[in-house]
């Protein structure tokens, strides 16, 4: 008898614990699902609307399941839609951004890798101070540099040109790329460099043969960071360049604020997606490195 009662309470306790577990799981997944909806709905809205017809959008509103399907908005947005009087769609601005982001990302990453290598493995008197000064660039607000950049780019003949923006982003990017690479290289043991020096390798050979082969993780982080940062940048794009020399972010603003004609949400949705797609692709394919860059960039 006593034994039966005993097992009874255990069963009851076990059931209670089990119920509690199930409830907590339901709450956890429920909350996650609700928040996910909030996060994902804006994306769905844009994607859906880029395939819906305009009459359907104005009838059912922007937030609705598609009842119609057509692809025309995409070619329109790409090549014929008028932005600020120029009726060639997003393509020119898209390529401006591509032409800007690729060289700027590569150059600033390479410079950062070199700087990080020197500031971690070839320290010299004063190198820590130099590093701290470079670090300040991370925190500088862009507004401070607007006038000087406009002046300098004008003087060297790069005003209103994609090359000017490349220069600006390279120089602004050095702080971040140096910070990332230096902090990563610090964790590579100094003994490796010493061993290589005894083995007869010099500054460059150690960089190419020892450090660079160890660098892919940080180079990926840096490239992703620079790519998304430069692609998404707006202030310099709109201030330093004008008309058809602007990058895609400036074009997107021009497109949504030229309020004269009726709002063509289908084409605008497609245009917005064209502008958002490259960094989104980078995010979905390089997710782990993207997050690592975020956390490193913030906490250091």
């Amino acid at each position: 008898m006593a034994e039966a009662v005993y097992t009874g309470t255990i069963d009851r306790e076990a059931t209670r614990a089990n119920t509690r577990y199930i409830i907590s799981r339901v709450v956890i997944y429920g909350l996650l699902a609700i928040f996910s909806l909030v996060y994902i709905i804006p994306l769905f809205v844009v994607v859906f609307n880029s395939f819906r017809t305009l009459p359907e959008i104005s009838q059912n509103g922007l937030i609705a399941f598609p009842q119609s399907f057509r692809l025309d908005a995409w070619p329109d947005a790409w090549s014929t839609f008028c932005i600020g009087g120029n009726c060639e769609g997003m393509q020119k601005y898209f390529w401006n951004s591509v032409k800007m982001v690729i060289p700027a990302t590569i150059i600033s990453t390479l410079l950062g890798a070199m700087n990080g290598y020197i500031l971690s493995k070839w320290k010299f008197p004063g190198s820590e101070i130099i590093f701290t000064c470079m670090l300040l660039g991370v925190f500088m607000p862009g507004q401070i540099a607007l006038l000087p950049w406009a002046f300098i780019l004008g003087k060297i003949g790069l005003a209103n040109s994609v090359y000017g923006l490349i220069l600006v982003h390279c120089i602004q990017g050095i702080s971040f790329t140096t910070l990332f690479c230096r902090n990563y290289y610090v964790s590579i043991p100094d003994d490796l460099v010493k061993a290589a020096r005894i083995d007869g390798a010099g500054f460059w050979r150690i960089f190419y043969k020892i450090i660079l082969p160890l660098s892919p993780p940080i180079l990926i982080v840096t490239v992703i960071w620079q790519f998304t940062g430069i692609w998404n940048e707006y202030l310099y794009g709109v201030v330093l360049n004008s008309g058809t020399n602007q990058p895609i972010t400036a074009a997107l603003v021009a497109l949504s604020t030229n309020g004269t004609n009726v709002r063509v949400y289908d084409v605008m949705s497609a245009a917005v997606l064209i502008g958002a797609l490259p960094p989104l692709l980078v995010y979905f394919f390089g997710g782990k490195y993207f997050v690592r860059g975020l956390t490193q960039g913030a906490i250091k």
């Binding site: 928040f35 996910s36 996060y39 994902i40 804006p42 994306l43 809205v45 844009v46 998304t228 692609w231 998404n232 940048e233 707006y234 972010t249 997107l252 603003v253 949504s256 605008m268 917005v272 502008g275 958002a276 960094p279 989104l280 980078v282 995010y283 979905f284 997710g287 993207f290 997050v291 975020l294």
Partner: peptide
């Protein structure tokens, strides 16, 4: 899901 907005520019977010 929770992180993707960070990949997108403020411009895109603001427009949408």
């Amino acid at each position: 899901i929770f992180l993707y907005p960070l990949a997108v520019s403020f411009i895109v977010t603001g427009t949408v």
